[in-house]
């Protein structure tokens, strides 16, 4: 995944988050985890963590109320490292495993954020299970969908369609 694609992914994630925030949805997928997942898919941990920092800081700037800037960056860096570890040891090419991996990453991120809040604030902010489940499942489905879209052979399909028309 090129830097341009990563930047594009981050921009799209930012826009998507803003849109979903404007829609006042109770629970949304973790859009910022998608570029991190794509960066970590081949096992490039350093690159994945850099993308995770950027994504986490963007997410913090958009969603965290204040004085916790870096919360999601921390969690995403950890998740990125774990995803890169997995990506370095297995081939994550198909959409469903990729979605499942990011769903797990989303769950891990939620747990890390809760633990970090507990450490920093002294209060245990456990997310509501339903919202967490929606967020995890939504992230997984979205990741699987994006992966499927990106993996689909658009050029071959178009060429085939063209050949069918000509015939």
């Amino acid at each position: 995944m090129s830097a341009l694609a990563t930047a594009l992914g981050l921009v799209l994630a930012t826009l998507g988050t803003l849109v979903m925030g404007a829609l006042r949805l109770p629970s949304v997928p973790d859009l910022f985890l998608l570029p991190v997942g794509f960066a970590a898919r081949r096992g490039a941990a350093g690159r994945a963590m850099v993308v995770a920092v950027a994504a986490g800081l963007l997410e913090d700037s958009l969603t965290v109320p204040g004085r916790l800037f870096g919360l999601h960056a921390f969690a995403k860096v950890l998740v990125a490292f774990c995803l890169a570890l997995v990506g370095a040891r297995t081939l994550v090419e198909k959409a469903v495993p990729f979605g499942a991996l990011l769903a797990a990453g989303s769950a891990v991120e939620g747990a890390v954020v809760a633990g970090l809040l507990w450490v920093l604030r002294g209060d245990l902010f456990l997310p509501e299970p339903g919202r967490l489940a929606v967020r995890v499942v939504g992230t997984g489905l979205l990741a699987a969908a994006v992966r499927a879209l990106l993996r689909y052979p658009w050029k071959e399909a178009r060429a085939a369609r063209r050949r069918r028309k000509l015939a």
């Binding site: 941990a45 350093g46 850099v50 920092v53 870096g70 960056a73 921390f74 860096v77 490292f81």
Partner: peptide, 21 residues
């Protein structure tokens, strides 16, 4: 190098959070 980078990034985040909380 990845582990070192991980540690640095995590420490940076913690430092960033600690000056705010």
């Amino acid at each position: 190098r990845d582990v070192v980078l991980l540690a640095l990034l995590l420490a940076g985040c913690i430092l960033l959070l600690s000056v705010q909380v």
